[in-house]
């Protein structure tokens, strides 16, 4: 019997049964699969089937018998069946909008999981799901063709805690290096996906841009046995820069920035810091571990963004602005 068919039969049998089904009964019911060959090989086959069903969210529980109860396997029907979720029309609509946007982006890890989840939350609703009005286009990079496949492989590695091997291109060295990585997590920042994990080559936790990976392979040996544990203290956001000055290149430096004129009311949007206001505008203080990353961001905002201090940051800001000015034919007096 084909394995898919056997597993479906098993689910149908257990969902219908009013009493636990013993191992001898299962062997009799599935004679060709669990009833022939050595007992040990039959038990191993059944264990693999149980594990497959558990991954689908269907736990087979063994009930120990006593004087009053038979022993055997059961599926708890309440735990199996999807309950009707009391989502309001608005809740369902925004959830659909978000899920559909992520699926439509063509680059979302666990896209099959997400598609199944969307189907299930809409199962009890009548009529078609609300039309998505949110669209997500990923990628600040030109090459995105293999991104969905890579993301799905990485998500699979993360959920099963299996190591991945990959070739990683560094634009800095312009070379590829072969890495084995214990995949801890994925993060999306400014349209780009990053993998954070323990790099066996560097013997430390490292962050990798997914678009710079080639030949991503998940360790296929012993698929149900994790290769590693994620340290309890691990926090994904500590390793992924959200803003260009958060890359961990240097010792941290606190920089004060003043936003004037039309930028002042947008201070809280333009910077992840609570602004303070005075007669000149809004001031924010940022902790930078990549000073040039912060200063070029400030430059990009134009003349209404000024660096107030410290002196080192002010001098570097001026140096960068001067470099742009002279490169464009400006002559300093």
């Amino acid at each position: 019997m084909e394995r898919t068919e056997r597993l479906l039969d098993l689910v149908a049998l257990l969902l219908d049964s009013k009493h636990p089904i013993s191992w001898p009964e299962l062997r009799e019911a599935f004679k060709a699969d669990y009833g022939t060959g050595s007992l040990e090989s039959c038990e191993r086959k059944f264990e693999r089937d149980k594990a497959e069903l558990l991954e689908l969210g269907i736990p087979l529980t063994f009930i120990k018998g006593d004087d009053e109860h038979e022993e055997g396997y059961v599926v708890d029907r309440d735990a199996y069946y999807l309950p009707e979720v009391s989502l309001s029309a608005e809740e369902l609509a925004v959830l659909y909008a978000a899920g559909s946007a992520a699926l439509g982006s063509g680059g979302f890890p666990g896209s099959q999981d997400l598609a199944h989840a969307l189907r299930k939350i809409g199962f009890f609703t009548d009529g078609p799901p609300p039309a998505p009005k949110v669209r997500l286009e990923l990628g600040g990079v030109a090459e995105t063709k293999n991104l969905p496949e890579r993301l799905d492989a990485l998500w699979s590695a993360i959920t099963t805690r299996k190591s991945v091997t990959l070739d990683y291109f560094s634009p800095h060295s312009k070379q590829e290096s072969h890495r084995v990585v214990d995949a801890y997590g994925l993060a999306l920042r400014r349209g780009l996906w990053s993998l954070v994990g323990y790099c066996h080559l560097r013997k430390a936790i490292r962050t990798f841009h997914v678009h710079r990976m080639h030949r991503v392979t998940v360790n296929a040996s012993k698929p149900r046995s994790p290769d590693y544990e994620v340290p309890a203290s691990f926090s994904l956001e500590e390793y992924v820069a959200t803003w260009p000055w958060q890359h961990r290149f240097h010792e941290p430096i606190d920089v004060e920035v003043l936003l004037t004129g039309e930028l002042a009311p947008l201070a809280g949007t333009l910077f992840p810091s609570t602004p303070t206001s005075d007669e000149r505008g809004a001031r924010v203080t940022l902790r930078a571990t990549d000073l040039d990353g912060l200063l070029t961001y400030v430059l990009s905002l134009g003349a209404q963004a000024k660096v107030l201090g410290p002196d080192r940051a002010k001098a570097r800001h001026r140096e960068l602005a001067l470099a742009v000015f002279t490169a464009h034919g400006g002559v300093t007096s």
């Binding site: 689908l56 969210g57 309950p83 890890p109 959920t159």
Partner: peptide, 13 residues
């Protein structure tokens, strides 16, 4: 009725 969401499907959503 279908089975409930798996943890992975819930996380994705």
């Amino acid at each position: 009725a279908p089975p409930r969401l798996t943890a992975a499907a819930g996380v994705a959503l």
